[in-house]
Each structure stands twice: as structure tokens, then as C-alpha cells.
Computed example of a mutant assay.
Amino acid sequence: MTFSIVARCPRTGMFGVAVASSSAAVAARCAYAQAGVGAVASQNVTDPTLGPRTLELMARGLSATEAVSVLKRTSAYPEYRQLLAVDAAGVSAVHSGRKALGVWAEASGNDVACGGNLLANADVPKLMVEAFIASDGHLGDRLIVVMRAALSAGGEAGPVRSAGMKLVDTVSWPVADLRCDWTDACPVEELAAIWQIYKPQLDAYVTRAINPSAAPSYGVPGDE
């Protein structure tokens, strides 16, 4: 039902998650990230507590591998879960339970992990990782490249209806949290279009939060 990527930009330290699914509003349940700590995707018969718990363990000093291992041992119904994580050192880890749905697969490398279930074929995550490694530029751009590569590789076995992307940087809140919660068109392309609108404004939104007096013009009547 889902394919996703968690990734770290080694140049900036930014973390990101991107996810797509045949289910509605997938990013609301599956995408988690914390500045300076890591990124997590929790999917396949989703337990939304696993994302925050994985981030908490990594914030306490556990690596992504250690955190995923702890949750594999201690969480309920691990055989149904798929959990992806990347930490502040770029270490990545994936757990895919034996009862993951349909064709499922996972792949990982330095700074990246990808996984999916109910996939069109088992090569999708490997090709996603390869696309990430071959890409460059802003982490948000790279995540879009990867999600498009997943679709080109076959993506999910059924129609994809929702997609989302979350980015964290140096501030305590997500600097981007973009979603297409349902569409009969292509949610990855709708997400890409939203990102192209949002990307040029990302830094300004952060500046306005930290110091409005230093922010660029809001472009509205009455703004001086």
C-alpha cells in the first residue's frame, strides 16, 4: 500500500521523508522527522506511535540500527510493521515484518533507506536508493526525484492516491510539511507542483518565525 524514503543531506544536515500510498492522507500517519536527530517512516498496517518512539530513542543517543532493533523487540505486532530510519550520522535501518502486505522490499545506503509494500515489483526500493545516490541539490528536490523514480519502476501494485513530504533543518519545527491527501490524478506530481511553489518561500517562512523585522516583504496590502 505504500512506498517511502527517509534521507539525510550530509552537506546541510537536513532530514526528509517522502511517502506515497493508495490510502488517503498517508503522510499524516507515516512521516516523522526531528531536526538534528533523524527521519522515520512507519508503514504497513501503520502504528503511528513507532515514528515518535524511534525519534525519541535516537535523540537519546541510539543509532538508527539500535533504535529499530529495540522497537522490533518491544513493540506490539512487529510482524505487521515496516519501519525505516536514518540518524544524525547517516546510519540507516529498516525493519520489514514477515506479514508485510503483498510484494514488499527494502533497500538502504549511507544517508538513505527506502521500503514499500504491495509493490508492483521487489526492485522498487533498490531503484529508489540508486536514484537518491545519483541525485544532488536541495534535499526536497532529491526526494521528488526518488518518488518519481519509484513510479517509473512500477511503484505500488494499485493506483496511488496520496503523497507527502516532510523536511526538518536547524529549527525545532518542520521547514516543509507538504501533502496531497487524495487525488484521482498523480499525487506525486501534485506534491512536486506544491514543492515548486513552496521551495522559494521556505527560508522566508523560517526568518519570519525567528525575526519578523528581518523578514522579506509579505507582498500584501499594508506591508511596508
Rank of each mutant, 00 (worst) to 15 (best):
A18N: 06
L118V: 12
Q34S: 12
P174N: 01
A134C: 00
A149S: 11
A163C: 13
A100E: 04
R11Q: 14
L84Q: 10
A93S: 09
A20V: 11
T74N: 13
T170E: 14
D136P: 01
P200A: 12
A120I: 00
A93W: 01
Y205V: 15
V37D: 11
S213P: 03
S172E: 14
M1G: 12
Q196D: 05
A209C: 15
S162T: 06
L202R: 12
A27N: 06
A157N: 13
A100H: 02
L151T: 07
A113T: 06
V175W: 06
Y80M: 11
S75F: 01
W104S: 14
A150W: 04
D184W: 11
D223N: 01
W182T: 06
A39Q: 03
G13S: 10
R11D: 14
L118S: 04
A7E: 11
N211H: 14
K99G: 02
M14S: 14
E190I: 05
R142V: 07
A150K: 01
V40A: 12
D203E: 15
P221M: 09
I210P: 11
R53W: 02
I133A: 07
A134N: 01
S4M: 04
G155L: 08
V188M: 03
L143P: 01
P216L: 12
I197S: 08
F3I: 06
C180Y: 05
T183H: 10
Y80H: 10
V145C: 14
